[in-house]
Design a protein around this nucleic acid. Structure first.
Lengths: 340, 340
DNA sequence: AAACTTTGCTTAATCGTTTAAGCTGTTCAA
DNA sequence: TTGAACAGCTTAAACGATTAAGCAAAGTTT
């Protein structure tokens, strides 16, 4: 690799010290009293030699890398990829670049990633924390490393976060089903301690209670990420073969919904006539289902942008802001239509 | 932010020079003849102080950042996100991290990104090049900056690349339709000069010719990325209202296919009875369509991994390897079933 | 003309590492 | 008892930038 042009090269080329070159190229000519003619010569040389400052050297000196570490569950998941894209754009708009890593919902991997990124001196983190990673967030906070949580957070860990009101979102989704005449509503979620998913269950339960429906715990099924496809299939089978089978099904994520819908399609169950469906989060797959799926839509743009803005604020003045939960929107389509 | 522990801190703590600490922590104690007891004390101190080396400083010294710059069209696109994830994993396995950027198929943005990443001293690039970005690749090559192109390449620009044989893949997809009895096969592609998409058209045409079907240019439609939804709809309408309408449709990408399928669903056209469909690239959306879509599957894992391996080879010894085109697989499902 | 002030530049330290070169003291062969 | 060989450490320069401090020459004030 051809060695890059450095400040020194310009200095030698013009016949001055590197200090002068640095002043001029950082537009400090006025404050630092650099001669007009000299400044012009330096700028000209920098242009001719196509000088590009070495950010690594700058970073070492300044202690700032203008880099954000982004840790998501899995960058190949549409939800993560979407957020990543928005964060990328907002970061770029502010002169930051993004280094990312996928934790696979695994606390060990997440810890690894945090360390790798810390060693690369990221200025701060945006993290969608995985289960059992409370201590990692605490560690960052204790060391005064700027962090903003996104999508999820731990009620036990005081930290800046940007998220939706999951309980409310689930509540509204289920209430919508109830209003449309459904009475036996099943829910499929992940087997996890993650607070935001617990909240979705809580919202579901609150809607059931508020509507004086039978609060039947056996209607709530928990699938494990590791064996998702099989467990979702089995759980749908169970929900459908109850003595009082379900007439509606609420999925706690788009991945769960897509897996479930494949099975429901194979079973040739009429949606929404026999079974109404509401999903969580967007995916283009919802549109291709024979009857478009109703789903809870998160304000992705706002989530991503707020996360970056909040992080940059924290990086700037280290103060803890708080962010209110963002509102979701229920996109109502045919899959949750009125019960015949 | 609490200042991090540096080599100097350890040195002072133990009462030795930083050089010694560096030798020990880099496991050069034998070569550099460091006393056993001393080495142990240094290691102990490093552990107690929780020393983490500053990669920025290392990079400045070594000229290596162990960072790969990844430029894709759009990280929120499932194809890009998938590749990104594979690249991330393979990079991590080799001690590299990934900085990414989305070019939005725009040469100016791509040039911006290259410069930003160059200033951050990435050791090399993996790029899915956008239209009209030949000069950028040439620039990198001229400056001996390691680059590997992925998914796409320019026949006019000699460069390392990892890609599939797009012509062959399209040929096989269309031949499959022909073998199943379809005769009027339309194709929807992007309006672009990008070689890999031209190749897909070429493969389509070759299949038509080899089968002695009517080579009708009006069956090939080109939609513009900027106005995709509307143009795809209109073009499907056109293809269906020809005096001799199409009985099969080949989409050059998954994004085109998903947009097209939404329209076809709204038109209530029976697939594959009235219209057979073959798509390009995977998406979970294909599975939820009432009749699962046949598609060309790229060997994503191999593409991503080969790209990283090739790049690391180039970084190591600067020699130009060549990579053969990888094979695709046609995943045959109901949407291209035998013509009744 | 002496005493400041201003202008326009240079010097050198610094960030946290790496690493070639040098310095001391011990051991051992001749 | 001299000096070569070696073990075990330190010194200092370097990577490429930033920036406080200093210095010489010219200009201004009294």
């Amino acid at each position: 690799m051809k060695r890059k042009v450095s400040l020194k090269d310009i200095a030698q080329h013009v016949g001055v010290s590197t200090a002068l070159v640095s002043y001029v190229l950082n537009n400090q000519e006025k404050e630092k009293r650099v001669g007009e003619e000299m400044a012009a010569r330096i700028r000209k040389a920098a242009g001719e030699l196509n000088y590009q400052p070495n950010q690594i050297a700058k970073s070492l000196k300044s202690g700032k890398t203008y880099t954000i570490g982004l840790i998501v569950a899995d960058i190949s998941n549409p939800y993560s990829a979407n957020i990543a894209r928005i964060i990328e754009d907002e970061a770029k708009r502010n002169g930051y670049t993004v280094i990312f890593g996928s934790s696979d919902e695994n606390a060990d991997k997440s810890w690894d990633l945090i360390n790798v990124l810390l060693n690369r001196q990221v200025d701060g983190f945006i993290i969608a924390p995985s289960e059992d990673s409370e201590s990692q967030i605490l560690y960052l906070k204790e060391n005064n490393i700027p962090v903003v949580l996104i999508d999820r957070y731990f009620p036990s860990v005081p930290a800046n976060y940007v998220a939706i009101d999951n309980c409310k979102a689930a509540y509204e989704a289920v209430m919508h089903l109830i209003r449309n005449g459904y009475r036996r509503i099943g829910m499929i979620t992940y087997k996890t301690k993650l607070f935001h998913l617990q909240e979705r269950v809580k919202g579901y339960q609150k809607a059931i209670e508020d509507s004086n429906l039978l609060d039947d715990q056996s209607l709530i099924k928990e699938a494990r990420e590791s064996n998702l496809k099989e467990e979702v299939q089995q759980q749908i089978d169970e929900l459908l073969s109850l003595s009082e089978p379900i007439d509606a099904l609420f999925f706690a994520s788009n991945k769960l919904a897509v897996n479930g819908l494949k099975h429901i399609k194979n079973l040739k169950i009429m949606v929404p006539e026999k079974l109404a469906i509401v999903g969580f989060d967007e995916t283009e797959a919802y549109d291709l289902y024979h009857c478009p799926i109703t789903y809870v839509k998160q304000p992705m743009l706002e989530l991503g942008r707020s996360a970056v803005k909040l992080l940059l604020d924290v990086i700037k003045d280290d103060s803890v802001k708080d962010i209110s939960n963002l509102d979701t929107e229920l996109i109502i389509r045919e899959s949750s239509g009125n019960k015949k």
